[in-house]
Design a protein around this nucleic acid. Structure first.
Lengths: 206, 206
DNA sequence: CTTCAATATTGACCGCAGTCATAATTAGAC
DNA sequence: GTCTAATTATGACTGCGGTCAATATTGAAG
């Protein structure tokens, strides 16, 4: 078992993980996250309870699997946009707006997903979040290079600020029983606010 | 029992609540939040376990008590600053910077406090958070009136963006084993970034 | 095929957050 | 004082997340 192709073990492992994720998401959607027990998930995935915790440290950690795909997709798209030499900020913004479609589909699920994301956000060992950070910094640096963002601002700070504003806008939108405002418009508004700047300009300044 | 002064009942209630909060915080600090059980808290506060949940819906809800004082203090100080007719943004910033001192003192505790805050943030029935929102909007409107912020920006959005950036900067600072950067400097940097604006100015713009 | 170390699975078990039916206090009415 | 309704306290109990020691499976080496 020294080949490049994955061993049977690896395949089975992947497959089991996939089964668990599928079962979990299905139940989460139907019954809600809190009302779903790990045992129910395991029953549906046909594994023992202990097995679940071999794959995920917490019940909610299954969301991490979604985040992975998420980030991979973002890397893909943003990379493509930046590769062209054109002004890119609006295109970048559009990608994030489009991602928001997912949140609009199942608000309950999205809430828990974002909470899990927040939880992992600052864990230095979380691979997915670190990739997200890398990506953000990369994008900001590129935008700076194109002259679309102030060059004197620290890329890490800027990208974190933008990501925080993005996520917290969604969180605010998710919590109340009914959506309080059109999500995508508000995201556009707030991110633009940060990028365009808040301080008064030219003649408006006193 | 129709007087203005609080009844014995009210007093006892307040006192019990206070006892529980004190016991909880003391144990949280010593043993850590997760390692402290509700029963331990109750033993120390000399009440039964059920009583705890008469006062707080969750173990972590005791932090809400701190948030109350917090917000009251902020209302006080920011009100005073805005009452003077002078330019106020830097003073406002200073208040938040000063508040950060608390977080620097007990990082473990602060982490849980902020998580609890985040949890309540979007609950429309949470009195404390609603007051915080009010305060934020009020401050932004005042700053707009003084010409220190763009007047065309929605006060609610702006204040939420600033609050989010503030809190998430602290969260990032709190999570790793050791502080990754000087907290206060970073808060100043990021909030200024938002307020001063990110887009390139004048000759730097292409 | 047998052996063996590494890896994966299992489910009985534990600890604790949170509930709830019952009991005790309170404060006012009479 | 007694009675009563409303409020507050209580702790036995439940359900579930998460652990872990025991068991089974795997794959390679001999």
């Amino acid at each position: 078992m020294t080949e490049l192709e994955v061993s049977r073990r690896e395949r089975k492992k992947e497959e089991t993980k996939e089964r668990i994720v599928h079962a979990a998401l299905q139940l989460f959607r139907k019954r809600g996250v809190d009302a779903t027990t790990v045992e129910e998930i395991c029953e549906k995935a046909d594994v023992a309870k202990g097995t679940f915790f071999n794959y995920f440290p917490r019940k909610e950690a299954v969301f991490g699997h979604l985040s992975e795909q998420w980030v991979a997709d973002a890397e893909q798209r943003l990379g493509a946009i930046l590769a062209k030499g054109l002004p890119a900020w609006h295109k970048v913004l559009d990608v994030f707006i489009e991602f928001a479609t997912f949140y609009e589909e199942d608000r309950e699920l999205s809430k828990h997903m974002l909470m899990e994301w927040t939880r992992c956000q600052h864990d230095p060992t979380d691979e997915t979040c670190r990739r997200w950070d890398e990506l953000g910094e990369h994008v900001v640096r590129q935008l700076q290079a194109k002259g679309e963002l102030r060059r004197d601002a620290d890329p890490a700070s800027v990208s974190q600020v933008l990501a925080d504003v993005y996520h917290s806008t969604i969180m605010i939108w998710l919590e109340p029983p009914e959506p309080p405002f059109p999500l995508k418009a508000e995201i556009r508004k707030r991110l633009s606010l940060v990028v365009e700047g808040l301080a008064p300009r030219g003649k408006e300044a006193k």
